[in-house]
């Protein structure tokens, strides 16, 4: 089993959590260590990293001891040998969200973390190349944040070059 038992959701044993589709909540400072433990434990692949902006949902269901913050980073791990998936949810912070990068444990998280940074503005400490990936380089704001409006944004594409 996982050497360092992480916080499981209320009422769910770790064995059960592994068997079903439940998530673990990792403290921010233990996040990378937990990923390393998972990797050593047979979770060969980090399938995805994504962010969630819980702007209005500070009262969402989290286990005891976890302080919900506005931004959450969700990492999904897959074990090929055990045929299991595990989801790890990390509270990233409110105003200046940042977590450590998984890049040095799972090199495949480079692009998903860049995407999360681009669309949510969550910083990943230690990431090799934290630049925008989907949006243009000079774009302002992070579009998937909940306070980033839909349909009221002036079009920010570059100025038309005029007749050639």
């Amino acid at each position: 089993m996982i050497p360092r038992p992480p916080l499981a959701p209320p009422g769910v044993l770790i064995e059960e959590a592994l068997a079903c589709d439940a998530a673990f909540f990792a403290p921010k400072e233990d996040y990378v260590a937990l990923a390393g433990a998972l990797k050593a434990d047979g979770f060969e692949m980090c399938v995805d990293v994504c962010g969630v902006d819980y702007l209005e949902y500070f009262d969402r269901a989290v286990p005891e001891g976890v302080v919900p913050t506005r931004f959450e980073v969700v990492a999904i791990f897959l074990s090929l040998s055990r045929r299991q998936r595990v989801r790890v949810r990390v509270q990233a912070g409110n105003d200046a969200p940042r977590v450590d990068t998984l890049f040095h444990v799972y090199p495949g998280t480079e692009a998903p973390e860049r995407e999360t940074f681009d669309l949510f503005g969550i910083l990943f400490d230690g990431h090799p190349d934290l630049t925008r990936i989907l949006m243009p380089e000079d774009w302002e704001g992070h579009p998937l944040r909940k306070d980033y409006g839909v349909g009221h944004v002036p079009i920010q594409f570059k100025e038309a070059p005029g007749p050639r």
Partner: peptide, 22 residues
């Protein structure tokens, strides 16, 4: 008008070690 700044490939001396490794 066409530059994507740091998203592009830059010269080796301007690239960090980790990024160069990638």
């Amino acid at each position: 008008e066409t530059s994507e700044g740091a998203q592009e490939l830059t010269r080796r001396i301007d690239t960090s070690t980790d990024e160069l490794g990638r």
